[in-house]
Amino acid sequence: MPDLGPAEWFTWAEEQGWGDGLPTVAPTEDLVEAMLAGLAGGVPDDVPELGPLPPSRLVPGLRAIAANAVMAGCRPVDLPVVLAALQGLQHEAYNLHGSLATTHPCAPMVLVSGPARGRLGMNSGVNCFGQGTRANAVVGRAVSLTLLNIGGARPGTMDRSTQGSPAKYTFCFAENTDDSPWEPFSVRRGFAADDSVVTVMAAEPPHNINDHGSTTGEEILTTVAGTMAQSGSNNVYVRGPHLLVLGPEHAATLHRDGWTVEAIRHHLWERARIPLDRVSESNHRQFADWGIKPDGDAYTVSTGPDQLHVLVAGGPGKHSAWIPSFGSTEAVSVRVPGG
């Protein structure tokens, strides 16, 4: 094809149906080769073998993934994290096909733990879910573009989300271990402290938990539990995991008051309950069809405390976030080759 300037390329790519609506970088052969050269030392043994991507059922080639990484604005250093995320998405428990074809607005959330955060310059602090940090932006975007361009998860045909969400452009953040009073999330999931780990989950965007008034850990958890107990959440009857991302100040208060992660999970399991009168009669019947019965005078929000994951991210302030999932999915963690 003729040489195209950035604006012409954007228009041309859009005409091909490539992209997410935002400008992309043209995946020229030299840029793709440079992207792949970033895997030096990791090629070929450390490159995960990927199966077919739904719904197109095409097996993605490494060059095509690298092309999507270029389009997203990735640097070579980002590619191993993108590949690990794609590997996680292909785990059967993640239910990639279901999460792409659903009417629910879930997006492929990518959480990065371990040394890769520093290597990529990821943001785990102030505004960690927001704009402004290249690594967060491009890693999540490369994953989404790969699903769209190779997987064929095109909005309106294969991606049937009723409303979608901004997280479908990119949803990637890092764990803040420096400001966490507890062991890193990845270590609690069985990885070594010097492993870089990607955790993926078919997730809603973060729901804010504002608590400026509480002065004890227990009071903060009262607010968290109230936020999680939503009758309009997939998790009520589809079940599946939740992610509680505590801001460092909320985490510090909880830790000061002696709360461990396990104690938080069990407390929330008992307290995050949806009273029966917040659920319509027809929904009671629908939940019953799905095999979901109330526990006493309320519904639970998943299958047990092990589905309530807790970690720390963010900066100063009295905010935390609840990230509910699609439901029929799991949080899948994968080690990034190369540490």
Partner: peptide, 13 residues
Amino acid sequence: TFLPLVAAQAKAR
């Protein structure tokens, strides 16, 4: 409304 999805899945298969 869901015909395009099913048609696309059929094409893929």
